[in-house]
Design a protein around this nucleic acid. Structure first.
Length: 338
DNA sequence: AGCGTTACCCGCACGC
DNA sequence: TGCGTGCGGGTAACGC
């Protein structure tokens, strides 16, 4: 599941591999994966463009082309951008293909076909437009701050949290609140900060918000350095990441917490598998702002929402079948590498 | 308006 | 062997 570190890795690898190369022809194989424009316009507009650079914004790979165009790629779940000699045989999961004029090809391969491509104009400020018209609205303007940029400060994060009433898990997954986090790194960041996924954002003390901020920054910095987590379907164009060996809670339901030895729990929150240690990530209770009666006893089970109350009953602890299977596949892969 | 939830897209691999 | 189901990112639609 490519999140910020994986997308950053892909963008850096691509920049190094194909920066300066020229696209001879571009071909969309599965039209549903192209958001805009239509496939014919895409092919006409991309042919002959030089790749000036590759960067990342949120979970998007942005390929800067000459003539003021940007090829936007979102890998979603299983997307890959791979650079190969053009003689390499494509399989049935290749959804788009860019022939370079140096006998190489960039293939967008995506097993589950959730990924998205878009060819748009570059606006005056460098951001991608919604269309081939550079005067159109910015495509990614709704995204929150980039956690690895200097603009993501503790004070900004703290005040952003204070203004929200939602739960930490769903808030951190919301790309409008903070860009680039997905299910893996949200669980990991909350574990590092010793915060419960259901803790309400506005209830955090200053020290807790600061802990969460530094956990996010440190985690993502480490993950980028490790080239991300190669979990199941994701593989970068230039080799596997190593971060999966350093994940503390993700897909570790039923196993001991690396910090306190408690049992890692897996619950379903907002339809997402959520992993945490109930022992060292306690749900704050009995904490309230002066004069607020409502916050006296807000436990998860008394809150509305069938998913949460159901998820937090005893029977839901431990790994699901899919997780056990993923863990097995991982173990096989690691074992085979030795 | 903000929050939570579900459906959608898709293929795979699980359990039964 | 074959069928039903969960998984998951982002978005849209919906209800409260």
């Amino acid at each position: 599941m490519p999140e910020l570190p994986e997308v950053e890795t892909v963008a850096r690898d691509l920049a190094r591999l194909v920066g300066g190369a020229t696209i001879h022809t571009g071909r969309i194989i599965r039209a549903a994966n192209l958001s805009t424009p239509d496939t014919e316009t895409f092919a006409r507009a991309i042919a002959g463009r030089r790749i000036e650079g590759v960067r990342r914004r949120a979970k998007w790979v942005l390929v800067d082309l000459d003539g003021g165009l940007i090829l936007m790629v979102h890998l979603r779940m299983t997307g890959q951008l791979i650079v190969l000699p053009q003689s390499a045989t494509p399989d049935r999961y290749v959804r788009a293909e860019l022939q370079l004029n140096d006998r190489r090809v960039i293939r967008f391969r995506d097993v589950r076909a959730f990924g998205r491509l878009a060819l748009v104009a570059r606006r005056a400020d460098g951001s991608p437009s919604r269309s081939l018209d550079p005067r159109d609205d910015a495509a990614l303007s709704g995204h929150g701050p980039e956690p690895l940029e200097a603009t993501f400060t503790v004070s900004r994060f703290t005040s952003d949290l204070k203004r929200r009433r939602g739960r930490l898990k769903s808030l951190l997954l919301d790309q409008r609140f903070i860009a680039g986090l997905g299910n893996i790194y949200v669980d990991e960041a909350l574990w590092r900060a010793r915060l419960h996924p259901l803790a309400t954002a506005a209830s955090l003390r200053a020290a807790e918000a600061e802990r969460l901020h530094s956990a996010i920054v440190a985690l993502l910095t480490e993950a980028v350095a490790a080239r991300g987590s190669s979990i199941d379907d994701y593989t970068g164009p230039d080799g596997d990441g190593a971060m999966q060996e350093r994940l503390a809670v993700y897909q570790r339901g039923g196993q001991p917490c690396l910090r306190c030895g408690g049992v890692i729990r897996r619950v379903l929150l907002g339809g997402r598998g959520t992993h945490f240690c109930p022992r060292c990530q306690p749900l704050p209770r009995g904490r309230r702002a002066a004069g607020s009666k409502r916050d006296l006893m807000p436990t998860a089970t008394t809150r509305r929402g069938p998913r949460w109350s159901e998820a937090l009953t005893e029977g839901s602890a431990g790994a699901t079948a899919a997780e056990r299977a993923a863990a097995r596949r991982r173990a096989v892969r690691l074992g085979g590498a030795r």
